[in-house]
Simulated assay, not measured.
Amino acid sequence: MPHLQFEINKKVSNETKDKFVNQIRDVFSSVMDTGKDHIAISIREYDKYNLTIGRANPKDDICLMNLDIREGRSIEKRREIALRYMEIVHALFEIDLKNQYITFTQHTGEDFHLVEKFLANWEVGEDPLA
């Protein structure tokens, strides 16, 4: 059950958020070869000066992403999803690519729990809720 967390230092409309989460979920499912029903997404909006990246101007829009995922995805898959997420953030939140930062945290399947069960370790083409 990935938990994909996006922190931004600006406000965006609910319509934009809806487009965003749908695109994020679709990309994760496609790239990581898994279903969609277990994907959790958080969007946190902060005031302008509450997020920073050293190379950005303090007045710039910033997006920090923490992607908690199950172990087993290759660096190529992680890099692909990182670049695609940066493009989505740029297109929908209008945040420069250089002002985005992503951290992946990998867990065993048993670290992710739904009411029905905990998840198994990731396998190609899986449906984790089946």
Rank of each mutant, 00 (worst) to 15 (best):
L4F: 03
L4N: 00
F6K: 00
E7P: 06
N9E: 00
V12F: 03
N14F: 02
E15F: 02
E15C: 01
T16I: 15
V21M: 12
I24K: 02
V27C: 09
F28M: 11
S30E: 15
S30W: 06
V31G: 01
D33G: 11
T34P: 04
K36G: 01
D37C: 09
H38M: 03
H38S: 05
A40F: 09
S42Y: 07
S42K: 08
R44I: 11
E45M: 02
K48L: 13
Y49H: 06
Y49V: 06
T52S: 13
R55C: 02
P58G: 01
K59A: 11
K59G: 09
D61V: 04
D61R: 05
C63M: 14
C63G: 13
L64E: 06
L64I: 15
L64N: 07
N66M: 13
N66T: 14
N66Q: 15
L67R: 02
G72S: 05
R73K: 08
E76K: 02
K77Q: 15
K77H: 13
R78W: 04
R78I: 09
R79K: 10
E80N: 14
E80C: 11
A82C: 15
L83E: 15
Y85H: 03
M86P: 00
H90W: 10
H90F: 12
H90M: 15
L92V: 11
L92I: 13
F93S: 07
E94T: 06
D96G: 10
L97G: 02
Q100G: 07
Y101L: 04
Y101I: 01
T103V: 12
T105I: 08
Q106P: 03
Q106R: 00
H107I: 02
H107K: 00
T108E: 11
T108H: 09
T108M: 09
G109E: 10
V115G: 06
E116Y: 09
K117Y: 05
F118D: 14
F118H: 14
F118A: 14
L119G: 01
N121D: 00
E123Y: 03
G125D: 05
E126M: 10
A130S: 12
